[in-house]
């Protein structure tokens, strides 16, 4: 599917998230949150990431994918619950006024930079 496009975006955003004071640092790990309903195949994303990260600050980095369950919220009775089956009706009051509060994530949560000696970055 479109995992190559996703991998490229992950690499771009991760690269742009390196703070200026750590410019030039290499990324050691990228922590990604992926909702259970997100259209991403993890294995395929990992493969694309490996290929696409070459010659970028993310080269050799580990891509850690945390799967986020589908959680619903009922606007009528305030109930919150996790679903395994695709049933979007409140299991407490039967209401259809149900919101998905998690499960569609495709977010970069954090990046971890290879520890660098600040002295290394000083010019001269």
């Amino acid at each position: 599917m479109h995992e190559m496009g996703i991998a490229l975006e992950v690499i771009r955003i991760a690269g742009e998230s390196i703070p200026a004071e750590h410019a030039g640092a290499r990324i050691e790990r990228i922590n990604l949150k992926v909702g259970k309903l997100a259209a991403v195949v993890a294995d395929s994303l990992l493969f694309c990431f490996q290929v696409a990260s070459k010659d970028t600050p993310a080269e050799g980095a580990e891509l850690v994918i945390e799967q986020i369950p589908v959680k619903l919220y009922c606007r009528d009775c305030g109930r919150q619950w996790t679903v395994e089956e695709p049933v979007f009706v409140c299991n407490g009051c039967g209401s259809a006024q149900v919101e998905m509060i998690s499960g569609r994530e495709l977010d970069i949560d954090t990046i971890e930079l290879v520890d660098e000696d600040s002295d290394d970055n000083q010019p001269g």
């Binding site: 975006e9 977010d107 970069i108 954090t110 930079l113 520890d115 000696d117």
Partner: peptide, 19 residues
């Protein structure tokens, strides 16, 4: 240095949607 090394790395909060 030692402290950072045991933690392994410097963690930076990003929280950005990939799309």
């Amino acid at each position: 240095l030692i402290e950072t090394k045991t933690r392994g790395s410097r963690r930076i909060k990003v929280v950005k949607r990939v799309l």
